[in-house]
Design a protein around this nucleic acid. Structure first.
Length: 609
DNA sequence: CGGACAAGCTGA
DNA sequence: CAGCTTGTCCGG
């Protein structure tokens, strides 16, 4: 099967006992005096076993499946989750009593989901149960909801929900709240947003409708007590939602939905699996659906006119026409654009490179300036000397081939771009980087920065990508999707065309499907070009991949080499790639392979490759 | 994980 | 062979 089609639960491999009735089977019907015993999974990912404990009388009514409890384990006190109740402990073990109950924990369906996720992303259930647990102790729940269920909402979302599930292509200026509304109209809905900020906006809008909204992570108890809508960022995919009736993932293409650290779980896939288990319909929305998202179900697109209206005007500056030696990052169109900036008309320039200068080329023979000692590209330091970033050697700025002393920056960083733009625009230009700093006046009419600038600025009249080719040609298999996602983010920042929103794409690849897709407000062009490439190259969702690294990587990967249907590549840069035709084959194999001692990182579906 | 205990190394 | 390090196992 292909990746995004939701993975089946683990086959009965050497799988651990299912969480919800782990251990030793159900108790016989209370036949007199048998004491109550529960199985507890310790809150310590290094301990994957479950241990049985007696429930003291005084805690009896507080302990239920999922409860967060305190236990004694080999002399230490730990937290843990009750994962089975009424178990009959194996004979000959001296049981200890639970030390206490911390409070409410994940409901049974989430306990089972954690077990599935441990299989799906080669992790430990405890890791997921932490994410699924409330941020603080929850001793009691608020009264059940008395809200007004929202009605109406986005028509395409309603259509997708009625059909059991679908991917709604919602242009950048589209109404995300309307999608959440359509879901909540069907009953308790789970809405996973790409950021806490957006989650807050959705929560605010639905509260204004009169709905009872649990905004995660703070609203965990509200969610557990029942709510019309449970909404939050990534981790909300693990929130309790009694009576789950619909699941929504907003901006499913956004890579923030995936955890970077192993286990690399993806909120979209968690939400989809949850919907599947609950028999609830689902909606994924995106202005530019990912292939992984599209593999989950049918796509519902607005009319061409509607979709176009939701994107800004896009201009393409074809840098091929510019003199390759003299052409910098500043086409005439760009210069016009930055000169149009002013108070209330902010222009944002995106350049995904930090630093001042990356590569220098001799103005006479075009030779790149490289280190005499080690051959790395050298940069010009403040004093004008050429300094090697790799070995530290410095030398005067003289071409090694022709002796000329003038160099031209062929790849400019944002620091340099800020200075250049300030000169070209004749107005103050501020620099915004991911590191958090802003150089220059943050209220400046022109901002330049790496893609972080798109996250840090509240709005803009226009966004220019100074060098879109850096994204288009990035050596990552998802480069095209990522580039379009970046353009879509900029599109949301500037707003739709009827509000004057404008994007400028500077590129030497004007025929590239990402450029064409943006130009025509038709993201399907990227998906259509990309799908056959992924299939040909064996990349997700046409195949399932795991990246294995760490000192124990070799030992872990070795037994996988012989496994039927698996392909093990590497090591390359200390990393192995495990490829399988589908998620089930891959995850079954990973789950069946013992973990050798030592540092090991297994990233299933790695984002960056 | 962290403690318990067993199997190996060193110095006399 | 004591005294110590290193490794493996197990916990309720």
């Amino acid at each position: 099967m292909t990746g995004g089609g939701q993975a089946l639960p683990p086959d009965p491999l050497p799988a651990p006992p299912p969480l919800a009735d782990a251990g030793s089977g159900p108790a016989e019907p209370a036949l007199g005096e048998r004491p109550r015993v529960v199985s507890v999974l310790p809150d310590n990912p290094a301990v994957s076993r479950r241990f049985d404990y007696l429930v003291p009388e005084r805690l009896d009514h507080q302990v239920r499946l999922g409860s967060l409890v305190r236990i004694d384990l080999s002399g230490r006190r730990l937290g843990g989750w009750v994962v089975a109740d009424g178990v009959v402990p194996p004979p000959g073990v001296a049981l200890r009593p639970l030390r206490g109950v911390t409070g409410f924990g994940p409901p049974v369906d989430v306990l089972e989901l954690a077990e599935w996720a441990a299989w799906r992303w080669a992790g430990r259930p405890a890791h997921f149960l932490r994410t699924a647990s409330p941020p603080g102790a929850v001793k009691g729940l608020p009264p059940p909801p008395t809200g007004r269920r929202p009605s109406g909402g986005n028509a395409l979302a309603e259509e997708a929900l009625a059909a059991g599930g679908g991917v709604v292509r919602l242009p950048p200026a589209g109404d995300l709240v309307g999608v959440a509304r359509a879901a909540a109209a069907r009953g308790p809905a789970l809405v996973v947003a790409p950021s806490a900020e957006l989650a807050g906006e959705v929560a605010g809008a639905l509260r204004a409708d009169g709905a009872v909204v649990a905004l995660l992570p703070g609203g965990w108890a509200r969610a557990a007590a029942g709510a019309d809508v449970v909404v939050g960022a990534r981790a909300a995919a693990w929130a309790p939602v009694p009576g789950l009736a619909a699941t929504v993932v907003l901006d499913e293409h956004d890579e923030v939905h995936q955890e970077e650290a192993a286990p690399t779980w993806h909120a979209r896939d968690v939400a989809l699996e949850r919907a599947r288990r609950a028999g609830a319909p689902w909606v994924l929305t995106s202005p530019c659906p990912s292939l992984a998202g599209l593999a989950a179900g049918p796509q519902l697109a607005p009319s061409r006119a509607e979709e176009r209206a939701g994107w800004p005007v896009v201009d393409v500056a074809d840098r091929r026409r510019e003199d390759p030696l003299r052409a910098g990052l500043y086409s005439p169109a760009l210069v016009d654009l930055v000169r149009s900036a002013g108070p209330g008309r902010r222009v944002v320039c995106v350049l995904n490179r930090t630093g001042r200068v990356r590569l220098l080329a001799c103005t006479v023979d075009g030779e790149l300036a490289r280190c005499e000692a080690c051959g790395a590209a050298v940069a010009q330091d403040e004093g004008g000397e050429l300094r090697c970033p790799r070995c530290g050697a410095a030398r005067p700025a003289v071409c090694l081939v022709c002796g000329a002393s003038r160099f031209k920056a062929v790849r400019l960083g944002v620091t340099r771009a800020r200075e250049d733009l300030e000169r070209l625009a004749g107005r103050p230009v501020a620099l915004v980087t991911a590191a958090g700093g802003t150089e220059g006046d943050p209220a400046a009419p022109v901002l330049v920065g790496t893609e972080a600038v798109l996250h840090r600025v509240p709005g803009a009249a226009a966004v220019a990508f100074l060098d879109l080719d850096a994204e288009l040609l990035a050596p990552r298999y998802r480069a095209a999707e990522e580039a379009l996602a970046l353009v879509a983010r900029a599109a949301r920042l500037v707003g739709p065309r009827n509000g004057g929103g404008r994007l400028l794409l500077q590129t030497r690849l004007p025929e590239h499907e990402v450029v064409v897709a943006a130009l025509h407000a038709d993201p399907s062009r990227v998906a259509e070009a990309e799908a056959p490439r992924r299939a040909a190259l064996g990349f997700p969702p046409a195949a399932a991949l795991a990246a294995v690294s760490g000192a124990a990587g070799e030992a872990f990967v070795e037994p996988l080499r012989g496994t039927l249907g698996l392909e093990v590549l590497g090591p390359l840069d200390g990393r192995w790639l495990v490829r399988a035709p589908g998620v089930t084959t891959l995850c079954d194999a990973l789950a069946a392979t013992p973990r050798p001692p030592g540092r090991l990182r297994v990233a299933v579906d790695p984002l960056r490759l």
